[in-house]
């Protein structure tokens, strides 16, 4: 499974993680190309449906990155997101996916290095878990091999 390159969807808040990603770029920090970043106006926009859809479409891992607790641009969007992410962990577990495939992180827009670090660590975590059974591309490829 060493050639497994996971697809990781990162739902990033416009006011923090998305800015941090930008900063990581300007700082020429390397992070894995496995990320598919989706910008949210605030992590409070996230619902279980968004997260489930990502898995349904074959994402191997999904994370939500919001502002540091207490620093949400909309006061408490990130505090709304956190229990929703935890709840969705249970939902994917019911389906038979490992809850570790889903996580929530907090960071500020100034934390470019942290953004890159989270990306590296999470991608590594998913590599260790292996491909999601719903990742059709991967399974078609491996069937053909």
């Amino acid at each position: 499974m060493s050639d497994f390159e996971p697809i990781v969807v990162a739902f990033c808040c416009h006011y923090c993680a998305y800015g941090a990603a930008d900063l990581a770029g300007s700082m020429r920090l390397e992070y894995p190309t496995n990320l598919r970043i989706i910008r949210l106006p605030c992590t409070g926009k996230i619902t279980p449906v968004f997260l489930l859809r990502a898995f349904e479409k074959g994402a191997d891992g999904v994370y939500v990155a919001g502002c540091l607790e207490g620093d949400c641009h909309f006061i408490q969007g990130n505090l709304v997101a956190k229990p929703r992410v935890n709840y969705t962990k249970k939902l994917i577990q019911e389906v038979g996916l490992e809850p570790e495939r889903l996580e929530m992180f907090n960071m500020s827009a100034a934390m470019g290095p942290r953004f890159a670090e989270v990306a590296r660590e999470f991608v590594q975590r998913i590599k260790e878990l292996g491909p999601s059974p719903l990742n059709k591309n991967y399974h078609i490829q491996s069937d053909a091999a």
């Binding site: 489930l52 389906v95 038979g96």
Partner: peptide, 17 residues
């Protein structure tokens, strides 16, 4: 409406699996 979407998504995933 929301719970319909959640459950449907879960069912599709479990059956696809």
């Amino acid at each position: 409406h929301d719970e319909v979407r959640v459950l449907s998504s879960q069912l599709r995933m479990a059956r696809d699996k």
